Amino acid sequence: MALAFITGGGTGLGAEMARCAQAQGWDVAILDLCRDAARPILDELPDVRFFEGDVAREDTVVSALDGLGAVPDLLVNNAGILKFGSLLETSFDEFARILNVNLTGAVNVSRLVAARMIARGHGSIVNITSTAGIATSPGVNAYAGAKRGLAAMTEMMAQEWGPLGVRVNSVAPGMIQGGMSRSIYADRAVADRRASAVPSRRLGAEADIANAVLWLASEEASYINGHELVVDGGLTKATMSMIPRD
């Protein structure tokens, strides 16, 4: 059975990825900061293995990988944090913390897992980026830079590790009714207003992202490498449709 290793898999998008991966026959392990927060998904999916650790710390990641007893066939770098606020009002420490989790942490885990995948001869890595790094907006501060940086690192990893048997791609979620955005869309009026701006006329679901990730990891996508798959209902391509013609 193929093994999927999902960071930030205890809640939100990561938990949905664990749920969908297991339904498709994957053996699933997750790495997250807090077992208590992950309790609902662990109770729901008792076969999922849990490792407590910080993606930005090499020692906790190595400990988890050693504990797996096997090399992951799929790594999903999903762990992330977001804090809204203007750049001028964001402290340096907070800015650095957001970068550390969303960018440095993903690169840290990727390097450690890729080394094992390369020694084994194959593997797939999917990084979770964001449309906030493609068409950013005021108030997302370090998150936008981290996600754009992770997209660039995805391309570089694909070039370096592709010849060694490891494919690296990314998925950029748009406006998703779940994950870190769940509280935003709890207000139905906000959710409806935002959905009306999406060409598909709906917000995304957590399963939309999970399914995209698992497809990229599948043999059906075996010739896709270094690609950022935007899953946003067409939103980032809709700029001109929002500008009046007369």
Rank of each mutant, 00 (worst) to 15 (best):
A114N: 10
R201Y: 08
E220R: 14
P244W: 03
T239F: 14
D73Q: 01
D246R: 10
K147Y: 02
V109P: 07
D43T: 09
I41N: 05
A115Q: 15
V76K: 01
L75H: 05
F50I: 09
M17A: 15
A152R: 05
V61I: 11
W26R: 09
S181I: 04
S137C: 02
R49D: 02
E219P: 14
A151K: 10
L150H: 12
R245F: 04
N211R: 15
A152P: 05
N100S: 13
D36V: 15
I224A: 08
L214I: 09
D54A: 01
G174A: 13
D93L: 01
D43C: 09
M156P: 00
A195M: 01
I6L: 03
T129R: 06
S222M: 07
E220K: 13
V126C: 01
N169T: 03
R201V: 02
S222R: 15
G162M: 02
G105F: 07
I41P: 12
G25H: 08
I184R: 11
A197W: 12
N127Q: 12
D208F: 02
A114R: 07
L74D: 06
L112R: 14
R193V: 01
Q159S: 10
N211V: 07
V126I: 10
T11A: 09
D232S: 00
H227G: 05
G179T: 08
R148H: 10
Q177D: 15
Q177K: 13
A158Q: 09
P163R: 12
E206V: 12
G80D: 01
R111H: 11
L203C: 04
L88E: 13
A70N: 11
A144L: 03
L214P: 15
V190S: 06
N78F: 08
D32Q: 04
G67R: 12
A221S: 11
M157S: 08
P40C: 00
K83Y: 12
F51N: 05
A64R: 07
G149I: 07
M17N: 07
C34E: 13
R35S: 01
D36F: 14
F50E: 09
G12N: 00
E52W: 04
G14R: 02
R39K: 15
A221V: 13
G67N: 11
C34D: 15
L216E: 02
L216S: 05
S170Q: 09
A210T: 08
Y223D: 08
I118F: 01
R202C: 05
G10I: 04
G174P: 15
I118K: 03
L87C: 11
R148P: 03
V48M: 04
N169I: 00
A21C: 08
R97W: 03
R116C: 10
M153V: 14
A29G: 13
D54E: 06
A144G: 10
M1E: 14
G9A: 05
L3E: 15
K83G: 14
G69W: 12
A144Q: 08
V198K: 00
L31T: 08
T136M: 02
E58Q: 11
V71R: 02
D54T: 10
S183M: 03
S241H: 03
L75W: 06
V101T: 14
A210E: 03
G85E: 02
C20M: 09
S200A: 13
P199N: 02
